[in-house]
Design a protein around this nucleic acid. Sequence first.
DNA 1: ACAACACTTGAACAGATGTTCATACGTAAC
DNA 2: GTTACGTATGAACATCTGTTCAAGTGTTGT
Lengths: 101, 101
Amino acid sequence: MTTLKVRVDQKRLERAAYVLKCVAHPVRIGIIDLLEQKQRLSVGELQEALKIEQSLLSHHLINMRDKGVLQTQREGKHVYYSLLDTGIVQIIRYISGSKTM
Amino acid sequence: MTTLKVRVDQKRLERAAYVLKCVAHPVRIGIIDLLEQKQRLSVGELQEALKIEQSLLSHHLINMRDKGVLQTQREGKHVYYSLLDTGIVQIIRYISGSKTM
DNA sequence: ACAACACTTGAACAGATGTTCATACGTAAC
DNA sequence: GTTACGTATGAACATCTGTTCAAGTGTTGT
């Protein structure tokens, strides 16, 4: 067995995993998918479309916002979410179109 | 709040999450990264490059093979792993090159 | 001020995932 | 057949993630 000279940049791998983890969940993919189509949606609208409990949705949304994937704007009683990291969108788009699906 | 007419294909979301989950881990990204560079590596060679315990590596490798990401060929005492699902490679490549990194 | 609505928060629990350790298996060399 | 090497397996444990529930915050309208 010969020694390999290859790059294994731990920091980079961890960052990549971090980004991917954030997307690797059906509810979160659903959110991204919807926001890609509609640009901007309130929590209530997302809830309506996804048919999940409000607080669960909120947890996911806040999680994604904290990780820099989404951003929010409050307008009166409503909070609107939209995509911030569009790189994530590309991944979803890629996956959706790939033969692995 | 008006009702949205959007596609939320549960099956599709779950499949996408399944694929992404498989990649969303530093060790597994490391494996894919190495196999992209070298085409084919034995468990021992991967271990040498990644500096992780043998059985942990084996668990990850088998996991990825079971999910259709990798394939194996035994040659004597050695087992060689290589990439099967190249779509996954594209994702890693995309992430690596993106501004989110 | 209070009620109603839209959303957030936190604690508790449940289930999934990652890691370790010890042991087993397959192959080749002797 | 036994030894040595390379790899796989399984059980036990630790940790991380997702979900629920109950209560809290912010905003608007009365």
